[in-house]
């Protein structure tokens, strides 16, 4: 483990942190065709929809979602419709787990012995 520590200032995913189609392909290690298919299946969405894919830009959560889709496709051999459904269900499970945690904590505060 390197002992050298650097202080890095964080860049937030504000509107300035966007990626073009070329950049998202490079970062996702995939072809533009794959990104276009993900958009058509609603897995990821450009910030502003345009009929010309070359005009698309994506934000950081969409880049993270594309990279997650690539990992799942590579590791679990999932086809595109399956991928779209898996990602939606995984997001739903995550949101529901958070909601259950939140409600359980709220319930604990109301229930007294």
């Amino acid at each position: 483990m390197s002992r050298k520590e650097t202080i890095v200032t964080v860049e937030l995913d504000d509107p300035a942190g966007t990626f073009t189609l070329r950049e998202i392909c490079e970062r996702g290690e995939c072809h533009a065709e794959f990104v276009i298919k993900l958009v058509s299946h609603g897995v990821i969405s450009p910030i502003e929809d345009s009929p010309n894919a070359l005009d698309w830009t994506f934000d950081l959560p969409n880049l993270a979602r594309l990279q997650r889709a690539r990992r799942l496709q590579r590791d679990l051999e999932i086809n595109l419709p399956g991928l779209a459904m898996s990602l939606d269900l995984l997001d739903e499970v995550r949101d529901m787990r958070r909601e259950v945690d939140r409600l359980n904590r709220l319930l604990d505060q109301f229930i007294t012995d």
Binding site: M1, T6, V8, L12, D13, G17, R98
Partner: peptide, 23 residues
């Protein structure tokens, strides 16, 4: 594989699930 260790300044107001990018 090489382990990395960084100290990161996290700004105020981070939300659950928010993404941060360190270029």
């Amino acid at each position: 594989s090489r382990p990395k260790n960084l100290k990161v300044k996290i700004p105020a107001g981070m939300r659950d699930g928010q993404h941060i990018r360190l270029k």
